[in-house]
């Protein structure tokens, strides 16, 4: 499952989510402003607290709305 760490008012987070929707990719969204456990996970994964971060395996991840990298990680052609 694709996981996205995001905040509600971050425009780049919306772009990532809209992009995945447009490609029919299902994802779970974690609002790190409210979900402390998700925030800790995000920090553990990236050693930082910036969003959006997208990951599948919890070890490699894509920061920001980087279409090429998202395509590569998720396998969108």
């Amino acid at each position: 499952m694709v996981k996205i760490y995001s905040t509600p008012e971050c425009p780049w987070c919306h772009k990532v989510k809209n992009y995945l929707k447009s490609k029919n990719v299902e994802y779970q969204d974690f609002n790190v402003e409210e979900d402390d456990a998700a925030r800790d996970e995000l920090y553990k994964l990236t050693n930082d607290l910036i969003v959006p971060v997208t990951t599948i395996d919890g070890s490699t991840y894509v920061t920001s709305f980087d279409k090429a990298k998202l395509d590569e990680m998720i396998g969108i052609n």
């Binding site: 905040t7 971050c10 780049w12 925030r39 607290l49 910036i50 969003v51």
Partner: peptide
Amino acid sequence: VQQFCKVNFG
């Protein structure tokens, strides 16, 4: 313009 946001702005 940065393409990401800092949670609580860092």
